[in-house]
Design a protein around this nucleic acid. Structure first.
Lengths: 231, 231
DNA sequence: CGGAACATTGATGTAAATCAAAAATTGTGG
DNA sequence: CCACAATTTTTGATTTACATCAATGTTCCG
């Protein structure tokens, strides 16, 4: 796994593409682009954390796993998102590509030196950390206190807010098991839930990896727990 | 609620006690001490975030609540812990004292100016944020993927690690409902769980607000999901 | 001392997990 | 490009862990 990572890193070329699009989005200087195939590992729980990343393209799932294989997905990272920031020591989770993915990799030390000096780098970093904390808090409420149907509503609302639509449909690159492990459900419950949401007119599923949101307001109400009769 | 907070703040006096104990623990300069009675509110969801805090004494519960009253406790903050750091805008959660509590309050603006300048303040802040993120991740796994008994084991192990023992017993200042809302359970399940842990020799409960851990290793194994037959 | 709040224990219900096929989709080598 | 295997998704039947409902017991505090 570490080997795979190293291989990917050595194949990559130096680039400044990260800076070319928007200045405020990439204040971390030059980085190395890594490309990952579906299910390839970016880093694993226990690895030493030598780099952090920004997603350029694709989607990454980050998760922790228990000894018996139970898995909790912590986040799905999308283009623009930062990933793999660690204070010190080893990785606390594993990150894998869900589809073909490109990330820009920055050496951690590169950041440490600059963060001290550059206010803009510092602010960017703070914003990323606070954002992560905020996300985690919402995730906690969902996992701890929402019903299966509310969880699905929450997931779809979040997805709709964070990703761009393709002629009326949202891409659903992760499979049902990924969604289940993100929401603290079984994949059968996810599948049944999607079917029910479809029957009730909340959404439509052109295929398993595509959703159209038919009634966003109602879905959002469901996600907030305002729909008592959501079997 | 905001009024109550203001009242508490105005009663408080200027102090430097925060600095007197350990220098590295309080790099944020002078602060104002606030004292809270059980169930008093430090700040509420929706308030403007003007300050952040460090607990001196006591315990604070921070939570988010859904419209229909379902509550998820995000953290129990203990002496030394920081609380109420927000990037900008309004509070995302409510913080209440569980027992008599003293906190040192720092104006947020006070931090912003210094963080830019002082590397040590910056590092302290990063450490707090990364620590919060790490805690939240463990909390997510627990909520999403552990059984009721494992959750209780996890809670007790965490408590044991974060608080000092009083002649063989840990203080359990929060009530069963607080514990339930922290672990994503009902308070009956918490109560039954404690009874079972007692019967099985993991712990002893001298009274409802006191735990003795009888077999830490076994409790830790339970918390990690390594005890398959934990009804 | 008496009442309110909290904790325990018991009986019952139910949401979601698990077990089990069938159906659909995806990938692969001829 | 098709056939066939593998994987993923859907749907159905059944079980179960935990919630809810309901007393009863206990502690706390004015």
């Amino acid at each position: 796994m570490l080997a795979m990572h190293s291989a990917a890193e050595s194949k990559a070329r130096r680039t400044n593409e990260a800076n070319s699009k928007e200045e405020t989005e990439a204040p971390f200087g030059l980085g190395v682009v890594l490309r990952l195939k579906p299910n390839e590992t970016l880093f694993s729980e226990g690895d030493a954390a030598a780099s952090f990343y920004q997603i350029k393209e694709g989607v990454i799932r980050s998760f922790r796993m228990m000894i018996d294989g139970r898995r909790q997905i912590i986040s799905f990272s999308q283009p623009g998102d930062y990933l793999g920031l660690e204070w010190e020591g080893d990785r606390a989770m594993t990150a894998e590509a869900i589809i073909d993915t490109a990330v820009v990799s920055y050496p951690r030390r590169h950041l440490e030196g600059r963060a001290t000096a550059d206010v803009r780098v510092q602010n960017r970093m703070m914003a990323v950390l606070f954002g992560g904390l905020h996300n985690a808090q919402e995730h906690l409420v969902m996992l701890g206190r929402q019903t299966a149907m509310e969880k699905l509503g929450w997931f779809l609302v979040r997805l709709a807010r964070s990703s761009r639509m393709n002629n009326g449909a949202l891409a659903l690159p992760m499979n049902r098991t990924d969604i289940a492990d993100y929401l603290g459900l079984s994949m059968e419950t996810v599948s049944r839930g999607f079917s029910l949401l479809t029957r009730e007119g909340y959404i439509a599923l052109p295929d398993a990896h595509q959703v159209c949101i038919r009634n966003f307001k109602r879905l959002d109400a469901l996600a907030r727990g305002e729909v008592p009769t959501a079997h």
